[in-house]
């Protein structure tokens, strides 16, 4: 499997990358980790005229927390996993990154690529929905901050313009009493998800769920937020009945399709089961457990 020919340019900085993309007449593609793009090119399903390599751009690989967690779009999954702040305070991100593809792919794959590729089977989209994240995009007209709810348009399509580059992911600081978890069912390591569920909860001092947000992987053409499930949880104590009701609602909001990873009906059950388990794990983490 050999990719078709293309022009290649190394971007010096973000402005350079934007300029290169703009000059490509819509034929340009950003090369970050390349772990989704290069296989597509080898199948010749993607034949970009120009690859703009942003791997040498400085300042896109940092993870900082001041007020909010800011993750550079070029942060590799393996680095996200190893980051002390993430490990200490955002275990849901560790859950997520560790089930992406396999360890070798994670050495190259970037968090920005995982989002910008907009594959509903990718794992970060659901987690970012649950985390109420925003993504920062820069283009010829400057920078804009896009709430994650508005980011995904369709399978492999986001609101990013062809000459816009995703530069950063912003995640609200984990509130007191907050906890989250991401669970994924896959047939084997490296396979796409059958389904995945990200759950974030904030527990109040009375042990009730003050806020909840749930994202679902492979539940439609894009990752989805299970808003009805969130509504059911809000204000309730996390008893079995409430969690079961929320999980059923999450499945009800999902529209998976039948494929090699199972019939749609089965996937709905998996979403329900994973939602229950993810909520329980999130609550446990929020209340000091693991």
């Amino acid at each position: 499997m050999i990719p078709a020919s293309f022009e290649y340019a190394v971007a010096r900085d973000v402005a350079d990358a934007i300029q290169l993309l703009g000059s490509s007449g819509g034929e340009g593609k950003v090369l970050a980790g390349g772990q989704s793009l290069i296989p597509l090119m080898k199948f010749r399903l993607a034949q970009p005229g120009l690859l703009v390599d942003i791997n040498r751009v400085k300042g896109l690989s940092d993870i900082r927390e001041n007020g909010e967690l800011r993750i550079g779009a070029l942060v590799r999954e393996a680095d996200l996993d190893m980051n002390a702040i993430v490990r200490e305070r955002y275990p849901i991100l560790v859950d997520t990154t560790r089930v992406i593809a396999d360890p070798l792919v994670r050495n190259m794959a970037t968090i920005g690529g995982n989002l910008a590729h907009a594959d509903p089977a990718n794992d970060h989209p659901a987690t970012m929905l649950a985390l109420r994240a925003s993504v920062v995009a820069r283009g010829p007209k400057g920078e804009r901050v896009i709430p994650i709810d508005e980011f995904f348009v369709d399978t492999f399509t986001t609101v990013l313009a062809p000459d816009e580059i995703l530069t950063e992911i912003r995640i609200p600081k984990r509130p007191a009493g907050g906890g989250g978890a991401y669970l994924k069912l896959e047939r084997k390591v490296g396979d796409f998800a059958i389904a995945g569920v990200a759950a974030m909860v904030v527990m109040d001092e009375k042990g009730r769920i003050a806020a909840a947000s749930i994202g679902v992987t492979n539940a439609g053409p894009t990752a989805i937020r299970a808003r009805k499930a969130e509504d059911i949880l809000r204000g309730q104590s996390p008893d079995d009945k409430t969690i079961a009701a929320a999980a059923a609602a999450a499945a009800g909001e999902s529209k998976p399709w039948s494929d090699l990873r199972g019939p749609a009906e089965y996937k709905l059950d998996v979403i329900r089961v994973l939602t229950q388990r993810a909520i329980r794990k999130a609550v446990a983490r929020a209340t000091g457990g693991k």
Partner: peptide, 28 residues
């Protein structure tokens, strides 16, 4: 538990690469 090559009614292969034809890893 994992491997199978299927065809749809039009004779299109289902599972024609290692992305869809699931060889077990050390974890399974």
């Amino acid at each position: 538990l994992y491997e199978q090559i299927n065809y749809d009614e039009q004779g299109n292969i289902q599972g024609g690469t290692f992305m869809d034809y699931l060889l077990p890893t050390a974890m399974e």
